[in-house]
């Protein structure tokens, strides 16, 4: 019969339409909220999603995985008196590994000895060149540069970030990447402990 294929196809579409409402009703009967809740969004992004698929961005947001990366930022630790202790030592590895070469670092030199000091004087990232590859964060030996989760950074101007704009506290980093943060902290503590033990051993032998 001519037209059978079209009807068959339309039935698939009809089923999708129907699913949206049956799903809504079944959530309602179970007393759960399908929209604007984490559970609802997770369900809509899982294999069981049926019917409506939309996550209504500004009102609700997709739940991004921990590894999600957008643009880089610099991590600082909050010191005892609220001082920002920048983790970056301006070693320049991120600037070297950056594929589009959009990281610019000014290393600090000691005014007296003129020897380099492990703190950046300034740090620029041209966010409009950055290709979000994540190499800087991957190869940074000091866990000082990390990839951000914040993507709503559109602006009316070109985006060249300087040190001030790049800095974000370690607590923020721990918030967006808890697992990575925990792992790195552990590694750092182990390293410090090993260092201390080594120093102790050295002191004992001498």
């Amino acid at each position: 019969m001519y037209g059978k294929g079209i009807l068959k196809g339309l039935s698939v579409t009809w089923k999708r339409f129907w699913d949206t409402y049956t799903e809504d009703i079944s959530w309602m009967l179970r007393g759960k909220k399908r929209y604007n809740t984490e559970e609802g969004i997770r369900h809509r992004s899982s294999k069981d999603t049926k019917g409506i698929f939309t996550v209504q961005y500004p009102e609700e947001q997709l739940i991004v995985p921990e590894e999600f990366r957008y643009v880089p930022f610099l991590v600082y630790d909050e010191g005892a008196d609220g001082k920002k202790e920048v983790r970056c030592t301006s070693c320049g590895i991120c600037a070297k590994v950056c594929p589009p070469q959009c990281i610019w670092i000014v290393r600090t030199n000691d005014p007296v000895t003129n020897r380099p000091v492990p703190v950046p004087t300034d740090f620029y990232i041209d966010m409009d060149i950055c290709m979000n590859c994540g190499f800087c964060a991957e190869y940074c030996p000091f866990d000082a540069i990390k990839m951000d989760h914040d993507f709503a950074i559109a602006s009316y101007e070109r985006n060249v970030y300087n040190l001030n704009k790049l800095l974000k506290p370690a607590s923020y980093y721990a918030g967006i990447r808890p697992e990575n943060y925990a792992r790195e902290e552990e590694a750092r503590k182990a390293k410090e402990a090993a260092k201390a033990a080594k120093a102790e051993a050295a002191a004992a032998t001498s």
């Binding site: 409009d128 979000n132 993507f151």
Partner: peptide, 18 residues
């Protein structure tokens, strides 16, 4: 240009934010 949206590529949500 009225709005610049950084990102390579901006995710659809970032586009909507723009």
């Amino acid at each position: 240009v009225d709005v610049y949206i950084p990102g390579c590529p901006p995710t659809p949500q970032a586009l909507i934010a723009g």
